[in-house]
Design a protein around this nucleic acid. Structure first.
Length: 529
RNA sequence: GCCCCCAUCGUCUAGUGGCCUAGGACUUCGGGUUUUCAUCCCGGCAACAGGGGUUCGAGUCCCCUUGGGGGUGCCA
């Protein structure tokens, strides 16, 4: 039997696609392809406020741009509310969920009860030894069918309020300071669960129970576990009747027959709740893999305010999709050898979830730019020219450039191009209103002799001399070595400290603009006072 | 606070008990080419968070500390 995994990317469309989210999509895609599985899309559009048609378009546009095309029709979560609510009803009638309002003001919501019976957990539960939990003196312990409320003792001896689901302390024994058994939870459980009993014990000193924990094998992190006594029953249907993420997510994963859930690290806590939910619903539990988060250049998590965090931003800056895809793949994963620039087939062939890193990864925009540059260099020339033309047509000066000159410029500038964004510095070829880089001005024209030499050159050129002749004459007059004038000249002409061979650049500049360029650059250096 | 997870150069990473004098890439620095700057080529700096174990031997296994991340919602 061939096992064919099914994975999904399940974003909620909010207008912009975050870089961390798209990396999750990429890893899902790579996993599916490497396992001859299927890559599906589920649009979690239950937030009607933000999930606008525009937001969905943006999402689809990004997936298309990166060629992350799902193998089946996308599932829209909003279309399945009936099924989600039906699942909640089933859980209620099976005794795995209950309606409850925590305060009189709240409408009753549906809570999923973390199962108290070990047999309901399949292989996902294990015992972790006895625990004795000290209670704060004088504070009552409250137990009803929604869970246990208690006040523990903090390390500093202060009251430490806490609570957990009934499952967390299902065999708990509440004891007085002298060891007297105040309550045997195992005995009382049936009537508590039935809602017949709500207890409030005074004089309790401690509660002793066997700790049990949910365990699963994470595909990237290995064995992960969490004690039941750190969990609470969770809302799965709101008071207003709308299903909560946890319910919808689990139902839809079952609906799409998802075998492997590959998602961000921020979901690991949810997995401890989703596993019992699958089980209670009678659905097969998928395998899980949690990917580390991406952090920004400050090493902090990306927040809404961070720039450069949306896929659209990279696209707008002229990052090639192949480069972004490749870079993001390398963020938190490596093929195990020294390869970095890999095409999609190579990445698919090498991809293994076990090889993904377990710690958060920090974005390095410079490395992305470098990689993008490599992709740019090998782009077929016709595509390259088309992209350039497209970008430059956004500017007036770019429109004015003839096709012939544009091709020459594009060829000359290509070797040092890292991002398409850089093409906007090509204005120096078009007119005299290009930006002068202040640092370049300082380096090339910071000294008085440099400005003097350039001003002499301009004067000579204005009297009809060619640039070459002017340079020679000035070099001779000022007794300057060969090449000494090149750097000041480059800065005066282009406003930049670097670039291609100076003569090649000059060859592409309109001869009549040479002297005015120098004059203008020099004028910018004159004291403004 | 409590729960869960993580930890190799500045950054992304290789490394699964001896092959590690810890490798590669980005960044950075130096040199070569270049009448200049850059591209390019060559070279250098730079890390096992700290402390205890286990072992003949530890970056690799265990524990503690520190640091980081995630969670702790009728958000997703």
């Amino acid at each position: 039997m061939t096992f064919s995994p099914r994975v999904r990317f399940a974003p909620s469309p909010t207008g912009q696609v975050h870089i961390g989210n798209i990396r999750v999509a990429i890893f899902n895609y790579l996993f599916a392809r490497s396992q001859s599985g299927r890559f599906l899309l589920r649009v979690e559009d239950t937030d009607r406020e933000r999930s606008t048609p525009e937001a969905i378009d943006a999402l689809m546009g990004v997936l298309d741009w990166l060629e992350l095309r799902p193998d089946e029709e996308p599932l829209f979560q909003s279309a399945r509310v009936e099924e989600h609510l039906a699942a909640a009803e089933k859980l209620i009638s099976d005794g795995n969920a209950y309606r409850h309002a925590r305060t009189p003001e709240e409408l009753p919501a549906v809570f999923f009860r973390v199962p108290t019976t070990a047999s309901l957990y399949g292989g996902f539960l294990r015992e972790a030894g006895p625990v004795s939990h000290k209670l704060f003196e004088g504070e009552p312990l409250r137990i009803d069918h929604t869970g246990i409320q208690y006040v523990g003792v903090s390390r500093k001896g202060k009251p430490d309020p806490g609570g957990c689901c009934l499952a967390g302390m299902a065999d708990g024994k509440v004891l007085a300071a002298d060891g007297t058994l105040l309550l045997d939870l195992a005995e009382a459980l049936p009537s508590i669960l039935a809602g017949e009993t709500a207890l409030e014990t005074a004089g309790a000193d401690r509660i002793e129970y066997t700790r049990r924990e949910i365990v699963f094998q994470d595909l990237v992190k290995g064995e992960l576990a969490k004690p039941l006594d750190s969990m609470k029953d969770l809302v799965i249907v709101r008071g207003d009747g709308s299903p909560v993420f946890h319910l919808a997510n689990v139902c839809d994963d079952d609906c799409q027959k998802i075998t492997h859930v590959i998602r961000g690290d921020d979901h690991v806590e949810n997995t401890y709740r989703h596993i019992p939910l699958f089980l209670a619903l009678g659905c097969p539990v998928p395998a899980y893999g949690h990917l580390p988060m991406i952090v920004n250049e400050q090493g902090k998590p990306y927040s809404k305010r961070d720039g450069d965090a949306f896929v659209g931003d990279f696209r707008a800056k002229g990052v090639l999709p192949e480069a972004l895809f490749n870079y993001l793949t390398l963020l938190g994963w490596s093929p195990g050898d020294d390869r970095e620039k890999m095409n999609r087939d190579e990445m698919i062939a090498a991809f293994q979830l076990e090889r993904v890193q377990r710690a958060p990864a920090q974005m390095d925009l410079r490395k992305l730019a470098n990689l993008n540059g490599q992709y740019l260099q090998e782009l077929p020339e016709s595509f390259y020219f088309a992209d350039i033309r497209d970008l430059l047509s956004r500017t007036e000066w770019g429109m004015a450039l003839s096709e012939d000159r544009l091709v020459k410029i594009a060829r000359l500038m290509r070797p040092r191009l890292q991002t398409y964004e850089d093409v906007f510095s090509w204005r120096m070829f078009a007119d005299n209103d290009f930006e002068r880089d202040p640092n370049a001005l300082k380096r090339g024209l910071g000294k008085a002799w440099q400005r003097d030499a350039l001003s002499r050159m301009a004067a000579l050129m204005e009297s009809g001399k060619t640039l070459g002749a002017a340079r020679e004459e000035v070099a001779e007059t000022l007794e300057l070595d060969d090449g000494k004038l090149n750097q000041p000249l480059r800065v005066a002409l282009t406003g930049q400290a670097g670039g291609p061979e100076l003569l090649d650049v000059i060859a592409l500049l309109d001869r009549t603009t040479l002297a005015p360029r120098i004059r203008k650059t020099l004028s910018l250096l004159e004291p403004s006072s």
